[in-house]
Computed example of a mutant assay.
Amino acid sequence: MPQHVYHEEVFGLDPLQRSSSRTRDAPSRPTSRLYDKICIFCQKPKYIKGQKSREPLMQCLELRADDTIRKAAIKKCDLRVLALLSRDLVAAEGNYHKTCYKEYTRRVSSTSSSEVQQEESEAADYEETERQAYEELFMHVRTEFLPNPEILPLTDLTARLERSMNSHGITKIKPSTKKHVRRKLESELEGSLHFVSNEKGRVLLYPDSLSMDDLVKEAHNMKQYLREAQSIKSMDVLTKAAIQLRNQIKKQDVQQSWPPDTQKSVIPEAVTKFLYTLLTGDTECANPSERVQRLAASFGSDLVFAVTCGKTKPPKHILLPFAVKSLTGNTELIRSLNRLGHAISYSQVEEIDTALCVQKLERSAEDIPLPEDMHPVDIGLEDGRPTKINVFFGFQ
């Protein structure tokens, strides 16, 4: 008869209690199959650039990400990452930073040995040219700048360095070359140069040989020059501007046909630019509004008509009196506009009207233009005399 053994604490329990006791005493499921929640590349917490917050981890959820990491690790012969890839990253719930993933999987361009040698040769040539350019700059500072002390912006010496390198065949200057000009000068000339920054952050330098007396004299001369510049009356500036605009109007050669052409602009470009600036306050008014263009054309036409004493007739001064005559028929209104400089005289309006009629008649070769209700009529003759005469009167 077989012998049965049992646990004393379990004996006497019903089947349900025995099942729960076995479940409670069973060992927990091992978690070693999952990787720790840490970046598999940098293996440490990482902060977002320029911020105090940590960059979140991303879990590998796609097989293509596992394949990409695997190819990059094989190319780099990274044994540590290859050991982690012995298991599927998706199943093992591998984590990584997004920036670390991009940096690790970035493709390394495969270059041939000849290309590598060419790059090394170009780098060596650049370093040699840079060294020669700096030597020339140091010589200029020692022979020109230190004996003749003055205040210079650092950009002037940087531009001289660039020109020197360009003369040696280097057309593309590296940013590091421009960035370390101050450090090179300080290390080469030690305490001979002093660097200061103005309120706009622009670096200025002056030699140690520039004494306080020279600075006081220069500051005094500058203040005196500013006083003289401020003492210039604004009327003088306005007078010069008026004379320049008058000369621009008078010197233009405008050949106007007769009757005048109302499609041709007679306003000089200088006058138009002056009016654009006057109306908008913008010195570089590239795209003026329709209102500004309309007002500038009107004011400019008045200036041209007034300066030339009516010899040059802008389109405005021809079309405006014709419009007033057509709408009102008032000749006194046209004369008032002429006295104010906004239109030609009424006599000139009549001359232009007559010239337009003559021009239209010349264009018609033989037939005389008549109104639609007027037709030629044959007059009957009796004893050599007309029996009926039809007389038509035409008024303009």
Rank of each mutant, 00 (worst) to 15 (best):
H4E: 08
V5T: 07
G12R: 05
D14C: 08
P30D: 12
P30S: 15
K37D: 09
K37C: 06
I38L: 13
C42A: 08
G50W: 06
L57G: 04
E62H: 15
T68H: 10
K76G: 02
K76D: 04
R80W: 06
S86Y: 09
D88K: 08
K98W: 03
V108E: 14
V116D: 08
A124G: 02
Y134P: 06
H140G: 11
E150Y: 03
L152Y: 08
L154M: 05
D156G: 05
M165G: 04
P175F: 02
T177M: 01
R183C: 09
L185Y: 12
L185M: 07
V196I: 10
K200V: 05
D214W: 10
N221E: 07
Q224K: 08
Y225C: 06
R227Q: 06
A229P: 00
S231K: 13
K233D: 10
V237K: 11
V237P: 00
I243E: 13
Q248D: 14
K251A: 15
D253W: 08
Q256S: 05
V266C: 10
I267V: 08
L279D: 14
L295G: 06
A297G: 02
S298M: 08
G300M: 07
S301G: 05
A306M: 02
H317N: 06
I334C: 10
L337R: 04
N338T: 03
G341A: 03
G341N: 03
S345C: 06
S345K: 04
S347Q: 12
D373I: 01
I379A: 11
L381V: 15
E382A: 04
F392H: 12
